[in-house]
Computed example of a mutant assay.
Amino acid sequence: MDKKALRKSLLQARQSIAPEIWQAKSSQLCDHLRSSALFTQAQTVLAYFSIRQEPDLSLLFPASKTWGFPRCVGKRLTWHVWSPDGSLALQAGAYGIPEPCPDSPILEPDQVDLMLVPAIACDTGGYRLGYGGGFYDRLLASPVWAEKITIGIVFDSAYLSIVPEDAWDQPLTAVCTEKGLFFSEQRL
């Protein structure tokens, strides 16, 4: 199956999950992240605001961390500090995704310990199927981001043995689902 067909099929399946099951799976996934040394040792974590029934990471946000969220600026992502206390405002971004306002403090790569990466699917090799814009692949191909610890976030039904991959796709360090945290075969 090609990326476009797989993306459509997996998005339909994810969006058909009943809200109470979606929240329970999201909670289990957050529990696995919370108990991971990758998360507990990180001081600055990049995350995302859930759309289209992506796993909801909001249960993690009270953790005493510095949180960074992306803004789409042209064809790239910039990362800004966001605080769960509401002191830094959000706005709807170019794709309708909540993002920090442009005047929010910027996070530079050397400040970041961990990146939680949204995906439609991930595979055991650490490759992800995203929404098709290439934002994360371009970011992770950059030398200043390439060595960052990255965890793909998907429900277990979207953790596949293999996803179609292109030459520009960048593997992740690990994948987290409601069933656990799995290190990528690329990183073993």
Rank of each mutant, 00 (worst) to 15 (best):
G86F: 10
S35L: 13
G68L: 07
I51N: 10
V154Q: 14
A63R: 08
L33Y: 10
H80I: 03
F135H: 01
K65P: 00
P62K: 15
G130H: 03
P19T: 14
A146E: 15
V73E: 07
L88R: 13
S50G: 05
A24V: 08
A92C: 11
T40L: 09
P98Y: 11
I149Y: 04
P105Q: 15
S35T: 13
P55T: 04
L57D: 00
V144Q: 12
R76L: 03
I151M: 13
Y127M: 05
A18T: 13
R128C: 04
F135V: 00
K25H: 14
D110Y: 14
K25E: 07
F155E: 06
T124I: 11
A119H: 01
G134C: 09
C72D: 02
L33C: 07
E54P: 03
F39V: 10
A89L: 10
A42E: 01
T78I: 12
Q111D: 11
K65D: 09
Q23D: 14
I149A: 13
W145D: 11
V81E: 11
F61N: 07
G74L: 03
D103W: 12
A37T: 11
T44W: 06
K75N: 14
A42C: 01
L140Y: 03
L114A: 03
S36Y: 09
T150F: 06
S58C: 14
Q41S: 11
P62H: 15
G93C: 10
Q23R: 13
H32Q: 12
Q111H: 04
A47R: 00
K25P: 01
W145S: 04
I149W: 03
L38M: 13
T78P: 00
V73L: 09
G125R: 12
R52N: 13
E54Q: 10
A24M: 08
V81P: 00
V154C: 14
L29K: 06
T66E: 07
L29Y: 03
Q91D: 09
V73R: 08
G74Q: 11
Y48N: 05
Y48V: 02
G93D: 06
R138Q: 06
L139Y: 00
G74E: 10
